[in-house]
Write a protein that binds this DNA or RNA. Structure first.
Length: 407
RNA sequence: CGGGGUGUAGUUCAUCGGUAGAACGCUCGGUUUGGGACCGAGAAGCAGUGGGUUCAAUUCCCUCCACCCCGACCA
């Protein structure tokens, strides 16, 4: 992809209204564009990053035995009535009527839809467990959309659901997913704190949240400085300065944070409400034990920027960067570009005829981990600069290719 | 929904009762090319909406709308 073809161009200034770093930088860099409050277009660059995020999540979900599918986003009132959530989640759910006055909801989650699938297709303990997930848009009526892409009314979510024959089996898998989530966030370049939290409209049980410390976060968590476990303030049983109740090594400290994931051990309520039963070993009808597990890739996108930026722009962690390298041509670098391309390296090539300063400023803003410069000064070598360093060094083409291939 | 802020060119902002201006961006021509270059010429605005006051409103008043921030709610 040539830089001159990148849509849209970068902006020199952030909108006056933008306060959150992700809002300023993702808009300036051409990663996203705002349609209205809480509603964002993911532009080609942003969509690339989300694609990287999704691929990491997908790989780790598959590793736990998850199978990906796609569920509908338009739901009938009837299915939501089965669990009473047409009423209890009315504040959060967008509803609409068609021309025949039939009532629908736009998906804000999918427990009911999944449970419907499971009751239709699973009737024996021999078919369990079921682990299915999707990436899809969620619609939620937020009283106030805020923080750039951190809280939208329409956002992307990976939601996984699992059905089990027993509580033990559910909790064993719940723990497995918790570990998978830790692996995902580590790969995404995010340090998370696992906190106990309330289940909101999803469940009465306590759940676990994956929180990233950030000043711009809207959650307040109490966590241990040593073991990185904690509690959301909704369910607080510890106080600042307490000895850590989990590892008893550290002290409880308070921080602002962004919730990037949440897992719910839902129990049998959904199955019971929706009359979803399987036959156990003894020939008896039993409700499915159910869990759900969510990560918001678009919120992750925003969180990454909140956590990884400086005054010049974004610093993407390697695994989620839209490109592996940003090739800045201060003279024709077509051959270098072709060589990197054919080596399978994802390169953004800036072959525009703009000034050097402008190209460098763009490279800093876009935050691709490695900047390569080809100019009169570099001769037939290439200048390598990491985004997180000021040092540059001259390398030969084969050196560059091999260094980038090992990333 | 309560409180606060902001709506003027594509963008960032000036003008603040006498009918609109800059910078950046854009177009054309030329000169440049290691940190958002330079010269020249252009195009681009119903001043968010509706109403009121006034001889005259972008400017004053009211309504509504939109966006941002704080709070309530929430991944």
């Amino acid at each position: 992809m040539m830089h001159s073809q990148l849509f849209p161009k970068t902006l020199k200034e952030a909108s006056r209204d933008a306060v959150a770093a992700n809002h300023k930088l993702l808009v300036r860099g051409g990663f996203m564009d705002q349609l209205m409050a809480g509603s964002w277009t993911l532009l080609p660059l942003g969509w690339r990053v989300v694609g990287k995020i999704n691929n990491i999540i997908r790989a780790e979900m598959n590793a736990t035995g998850g199978q990906e599918l796609a569920l509908p986003l338009l739901h009938s009132k009837e299915i939501w009535n089965e669990t009473g959530r047409w009423e209890s989640a009315a504040d959060i759910m967008y509803t609409l009527k068609d021309s025949r006055e039939r009532e629908y909801a736009l998906s804000f989650t999918h427990e009911e839809i999944i449970m419907d699938l499971i009751r239709k297709h699973v009737s024996s303990y021999k078919d369990l467990p079921i682990k299915i997930y999707q990436f899809s848009t969620k619609f939620r009526q937020e009283l106030r959309a805020t923080g750039g892409i951190l809280r939208g009314r329409e956002f992307l979510m990976k939601d996984m659901y699992s059905a089990h024959e027993s509580e033990e089996d559910l909790m064993a898998y719940y723990e497995e997913v918790k570990q998978a989530y830790l692996k995902i966030f580590a790969r995404l370049g995010l340090e998370v704190i696992v906190t106990e939290a309330s289940g909101g409209v999803f469940t009465d049980k306590h759940t676990h949240e994956f929180q990233v410390l950030a000043e711009s976060g809207e959650d307040t968590i109490y966590y241990c400085s040593e073991c990185k476990q904690g509690q959301n303030k909704e369910v607080l049983s510890v106080a600042e300065g307490d000895k850590c109740p989990w590892c008893s090594l550290g002290k409880v400290v308070v921080g602002k944070s962004i919730e990037v994931g949440n897992i719910f051990p839902l129990g049998t309520k959904y199955a019971t409400d929706m009359k979803a039963f399987f036959t156990d070993k003894n020939g008896k009808q039993q409700p499915f034990w159910f869990g759900s597990y969510g990560i918001g890739p678009t919120r992750v996108l925003g969180t990454l920027v909140e956590v990884h930026h400086d005054e010049k722009g974004i610093l993407w962690p390697k695994e989620v960067a839209p490109f592996a390298a940003h090739l800045v041509g201060l003279k024709d670098a077509g051959e270098v570009y072709e060589e990197l391309q054919s080596a399978g390296i994802e390169v953004l090539y800036d072959d525009s005829d703009r000034s050097a300063g402008e190209k460098f400023a763009d490279a800093d803003l876009l935050g691709i981990p490695v900047r390569l410069v080809v100019s009169a000064k570099t001769g037939d070598k290439i200048e390598w600069k990491d985004r997180n360093s000021d040092e540059t060094r001259l390398m030969t083409r084969p050196e560059v290719v091999s260094a980038l291939s090992t990333i």
